[in-house]
Design a protein around this nucleic acid. Structure first.
Lengths: 332, 332
DNA sequence: ACCTCCATCGTGAGCGTTCACGCCAAGTTT
DNA sequence: AAACTTGGCGTGAACGCTCACGATGGAGGT
């Protein structure tokens, strides 16, 4: 069974293609009577316009690319849902790309998305070849970056208040009486990584605790990364009684590592994470964290893309999302 | 900067469009010399063929739809990665759709994918309006279903050995000395749900333990669902010493619930889950589970789609994936 | 010298839309 | 009554590509 074309509808309704088009996209210039007639024919044939053909002439594919490190990382599914749900509301499709934090892979993904002809791109995460990004921003449509910085008329940014979040987390640990506070950081360079370290440092120094880089150990921002990093940190600095981790996955990995070392959490080691993923409230002990509205990030990113598409030359203010501390069992 | 077209390349290389096309898709009928010349022009202009235009004539969009309940559910990201990585290797794109286990939403998604013109569809999970599926299978391209059954030449299926998995899980609990074994089931109807209950029943009866439906309580297959379900089950049947859960998320929810009831796992309550998601080995206590190769599911589903696309009239055997028991702290 | 043949390349059409026009009749103005 | 407007609709072209042909030319055979 072949798919109906606009021509078929036109024939059945006894009008021209253009009239059918007018009826469907109701851009006026059509009488109610003929419109009804056309719509009946559309219904009867189950006609749906061919997206590819539409794209050819409108130069819009109704598709955006979403580039993330890894959808298996618990942070990103929620963001992706935010993007997808919003996209779908506006008849947009989302092409998901995983970079695994590999800059080369990211570049490949960007090229692939360009070839596919997406209307806009949302990029989250670390990797970033500045040159490629520049090229894209110059010759391409709207780009929204999350937790990354890039100054370009085609590029908008969304950031969460990483420094403040880290500050709140560490200050909380200090208020609980901790002094020897380590940090499990992200070994990959990223803007959020830098800001979270800065917040960590700020909380310490503002409370008269010397900042010691040796207490920061980097690892991959995963369960395993956190597990290994805590072992390393406690091996080198057994005096530590609390850790702030780059994200919740590392925090949970750290709790597990402490458990395997026969250390009780929080009595022997307090842990505070970042991102407040769904798992953290369930884990035993539940993990204190900095709440970030991940779904909202996705929503706002997608909406921003749509706005930029609507008004190409308007410039938009960066979006900064607030964070809050959620104290739980792992630190109280 | 406008994107280069095939015409631009042709002009620069001093040949015709067709020759450029021949050079790019190397379908023979071209001399090495001109091919080289064309490729140089392609390189120089950074030419990439327009996908929409290609689709118009080839009737292939190089895109497949992946319909899942919810990407936030830890089971699906791995499957999605399997699909995406495989797709990307073959120059395919993946359109991800979340149904939230809502049959109406699933139907809407299928229509949306049809309108988009995907080359094939992969569907995972429960919901299923038989009529719509039938319509699609009839008029549409290849469909691969995971853990669902549908007999149709256009439809291929991939199933994991759910019954055997459940059997292994429950038998394991019995071997640990448990007799009062409950089950936290999926309240949504699904093929895997039915099979896992059957495996549960089989293990009990084969070991001379009476099967009692009252020991099965249904809930949504999530952390919260497992949490609530265990509370309910222990409220009604405090004699229970072990539970088999529909999936790992429910298992972890159950462990958390037991913890909040001051029950020790596994001493007071043993738990075995299903799916072996990455989290289960990290959780405290780590969760025994039935291992399912989720990434492989995605890979095979995508490959099967490609096979069906290549040889439209060939019929393929269903794929059945084995499962294995991974005993961990929660039951030993 | 002629014809044949194959390798190489170009030409027109068409995929299904939308956009910029142009046309026509009926109503409105002067 | 002639001229002007306007709502309603149709026509050709264009988007960028591939496919089925047709054209060309030089190598080879007779």
């Amino acid at each position: 069974m072949k798919r109906a074309t606009i021509e078929d509808v036109a024939a059945l309704a006894g009008v021209s293609r253009q009239t059918v088009s007018r009826a469907i996209n109701d851009k006026g210039e059509i009488s109610p009577a003929t419109k009804e007639k056309v719509m009946a024919a559309v219904q009867q044939l189950g006609y749906q316009p061919n997206r590819q053909a539409q794209s050819m002439v409108t130069q819009r594919t109704q598709t955006v690319g979403l580039v993330i490190p890894d959808i298996s990382n618990l942070f990103f599914p929620e963001v992706a849902r935010g993007v997808q749900d919003t996209a779908r509301k506006h008849n947009y499709n989302v092409l998901l790309c995983n970079t695994d934090d590999d800059p080369d892979e990211e570049i490949r993904m960007l090229h692939s998305l360009a070839a596919q002809g997406v209307d806009g791109i949302i990029i989250i995460g670390n990797a970033a070849d500045q040159v490629t990004t520049q090229t894209f921003a110059d010759s391409y449509g709207p780009i929204v970056m999350v937790n990354r910085f890039f100054d370009h008329p085609n590029v908008n940014i969304i950031i969460v208040d990483n420094e403040q979040g880290a500050f709140l987390a560490v200050e909380h640990l200090i208020q609980q009486g901790h002094v020897k506070i380590g940090m499990l950081a992200n070994k990959n360079f990223s803007r959020s990584q830098v800001r979270r370290v800065r917040g960590y440092e700020k909380a310490l120094t503002e409370n008269g605790i010397p900042y010691d880089e040796a207490l920061i150990v980097g690892a991959s921002p995963t369960l395993e990364g956190g597990y290994n990093a805590l072992n390393q940190l406690l091996g080198e600095h057994p005096e530590i009684t609390a850790v702030f981790t780059y994200n919740d996955l590392m925090g949970i990995g750290a709790i597990r590592a402490a458990h395997d070392l026969n250390k009780r959490v929080p009595q022997d080691l307090a842990v505070v994470g970042f991102d407040n993923i769904g798992l953290s409230s369930i884990f035993i002990p539940s993990l204190s964290s900095i709440h970030v509205d991940k779904y909202e990030i996705g929503q706002r990113a997608m909406n921003r893309i749509l706005n930029m598409l609507d008004t190409p030359n308007k410039s938009f203010a960066p979006i900064e999302l607030p964070v809050t501390l959620i104290p739980r069992e792992s630190s109280t």
